[in-house]
Design a protein around this nucleic acid. Structure first.
Length: 306
RNA sequence: GGGUAGGUAGCGAAGUGGUUAAACGCAACAGACUGUAAAUCUGUCGCCUACGGGCUUCGGAGGUUCGAAUCCUUCCCUACCCA
């Protein structure tokens, strides 16, 4: 069986994934698929550290700027879209490079979710309403009744997952735990997983520096622009590190200094969560890195294997 | 030089004689995650641990007491006020 080769580049935010992907794409015919849950949205540029205009022109990029901030996009959409794009890239005889820090998106794309028909969204809307009126506990008890196996893997506090499990059950009549049990990882690609790993203190320093640079680059104007377009942090796309703090500042809830401090801190925490996710992924070949100019040799090294 | 208020774990801050290794908050660390994931949550957090426990703490040194972070003496330090 000869599966098509795909390169997967992961790592925490500010680890240099974008640069690595670009360098590889400069040496061999390749296209980049961003696996980043926030770069899919237009108008969120600086705060999501989206590749620059020139970078986007250098190498074809996908899954960037494909939705408005108030439009729906989730890991399932990413799976469908991303796989379609990979097929197209392969037809062009190029290497698909999946590059991004959203672990769930990478998982969806490479391993796949269980098959599920299109949901209407009405049941979910109803569940959202009920969790407001009846509370998390009530819905969790309902899940315990309806799908005890799935309930056992969570508790009432995980209301996102509770809602999803109930949604699947009411939409399909089948418990989500059963879907999970029956689902095998898809084997569509010969994926090479690459991870960039920095010493913690260095990564944190890079994050702090990058936040400063974002403000120098006009991050606040970007947020004001979004505000002018009528968006605020009630839309999921703007439930995002950096934007949340900026909206708080613009509403006068926190000081300018506090906003920056919080942005750095929350980005650091985000990076930590990403590391927790990727650490448990055994397919990743980790490259330890201590300076940005090590990315070029790493790119060379990876190319040898492709 | 005089006065006042203080010095508690990485930080902030309770506690003012007896289940106090010390509330709480923050930071930090660890973890979970199958269609909102930059989201949503959980745990640990003096030191050691074979996880049963063991050991050392509340500015320093002495003392009182069966027993002290809590009382006394003394020294050191910080902040503010007066000179």
């Amino acid at each position: 069986m000869n599966l098509p080769k795909v390169l997967v580049i992961v790592g925490p935010t500010a680890s240099g994934k974008t640069l690595l992907a670009l360098q590889i794409a400069q040496s061999i015919p390749a296209e980049i698929i961003s696996a980043d849950s926030r770069q899919v949205y237009r108008h969120l540029d600086i705060g999501t550290a989206k590749p620059s205009r020139t970078e986007l022109l250098q190498v074809p990029h996908h899954c960037i700027d494909i939705r408005e901030p108030n439009e729906k996009f989730n890991a399932g959409d990413f799976q469908t879209l991303g796989r379609k794009i990979i097929d197209e890239i392969l037809l062009r005889k190029k290497l698909p490079i999946v590059c991004g820090g959203t672990g769930l998106y990478v998982q969806a794309l490479i391993d796949g979710f269980f098959e599920q028909p299109e949901f209407s969204g009405e049941i979910r809307a109803e569940l959202e309403r009920r969790i407001e009126s009846e509370g998390k506990e009530a819905l969790y008890r309902e899940l315990q009744r309806v799908d005890p196996a799935s309930a056992a893997t969570m508790d009432a506090s995980k209301h996102r997952r509770v809602i999803r499990a109930l949604e699947v059950y009411y939409e399909t009549g089948i418990p989500i735990s059963q879907f999970h049990a029956n689902h095998q990882k898809d084997e569509l690609y010969d994926a090479t997983w690459i991870g960039l790993r920095w010493e913690r203190s260095m990564l944190y320093q890079r994050i702090n520096d990058r936040v400063e640079r974002m403000f120098a680059d006009g991050f606040l104007d970007e947020v004001k622009q979004l505000q002018a377009m009528g968006f605020d942090d009630r839309v999921q796309a703007l439930q995002t590190v950096g934007y949340k703090e900026a909206f708080q500042y613009l509403r006068g809830e926190i000081s300018y200094e506090r906003m920056i401090e919080l942005m750095k801190q929350n980005t650091r925490r985000f990076a930590k969560r990403q590391m927790t996710w990727f650490r448990k992924e055994p397919r990743i070949h980790w490259y330890n890195i201590a300076h940005e100019f090590e990315i070029a040799p790493i790119a060379k090294n990876i190319l040898k294997k492709m």
